Amino acid sequence: MRIKHYLGLTLQFLVLTATPLISWWQLQFGFSLIWMPALLTAAVVLFWIGTSLREAS
């Protein structure tokens, strides 16, 4: 059961570090604006899954 806890923690860590990097990438290089809400929604879902995994253990 500890594996769920560490998997959830890793998933949350990745989301929290990737979100500012995506914003930085958008500001530096630019990409289509439709990607920002899509990536933010994906980040919220992944963070929620990570929270569920951590609480399950």
Rank of each mutant, 00 (worst) to 15 (best):
G8N: 02
M36D: 07
A42L: 15
Q28P: 01
W25I: 13
V45Q: 03
L40V: 14
L9W: 03
L33S: 15
W35F: 15
A38I: 13
F13K: 09
I22W: 01
F47L: 11
S23K: 09
L14F: 14
L46S: 14
L27C: 06
W35D: 02
W35C: 04
G8W: 00
Q12W: 00
F31N: 10
I34P: 02
A18P: 01
Q26Y: 15
A38K: 03
L9Q: 05
L40R: 06
T19H: 01
I34T: 12
L14G: 13
W25V: 14
L46T: 11
F29R: 13
Q12E: 10
Q26S: 13
M36E: 10
L11Q: 07
Q12P: 00
G8Y: 00
L9V: 08
L14H: 03
Q12I: 14
L33N: 13
L7H: 04
W48S: 09
L21Y: 04
T17E: 06
F29P: 01
T10Y: 03
L40D: 02
L39H: 04
L46Q: 10
S32C: 01
I22H: 05
L14N: 09
S23V: 15
F29Q: 12
G8C: 04
V15Y: 04
G30N: 10
L33E: 13
Y6E: 08
P37Q: 02
T41V: 12
A38R: 04
V44Q: 02
F29S: 12
W35S: 05
T41R: 00
W24R: 09
G8V: 04
W25M: 12
L40N: 08
L39D: 07
L11E: 06
W24S: 11
V15I: 15
F31G: 10
G30Q: 11
L39Q: 08
W48N: 03
P20I: 03
F47H: 09
A18H: 03
V44I: 15
F31E: 05
V15K: 07
S23C: 09
L7M: 12
Q28I: 08
L33K: 12
S23W: 06
W48D: 05
S23G: 11
I22N: 05
W35I: 07
W24I: 15
L46P: 10
P20Q: 04
T41W: 00
A43W: 00
L27D: 11
T19Q: 07
T19A: 12
A43P: 08
W48K: 06
F47W: 15
Q12G: 10
Y6H: 11
A42N: 01
W24E: 06
F47I: 05
W25C: 09
Q12T: 08
V15P: 13
W48E: 03
I34G: 09
F13C: 12
F47Y: 14
T17G: 07
G30Y: 00
G8T: 01
V44T: 12
W25F: 13
A43T: 07
L7S: 15
L11R: 07
A18N: 05
A43I: 02
S32I: 08
Q12L: 05
L39K: 05
L40T: 11
T41C: 09
S32V: 13
V45L: 15
L27H: 11
F29K: 10
L21T: 10
G30H: 09
G8L: 01
Y6I: 13
L39P: 07
V45D: 00
S32R: 11
L9A: 13
G8S: 03
W35N: 08
P20N: 04
G30K: 11
G30C: 02
V44C: 08
P20F: 00
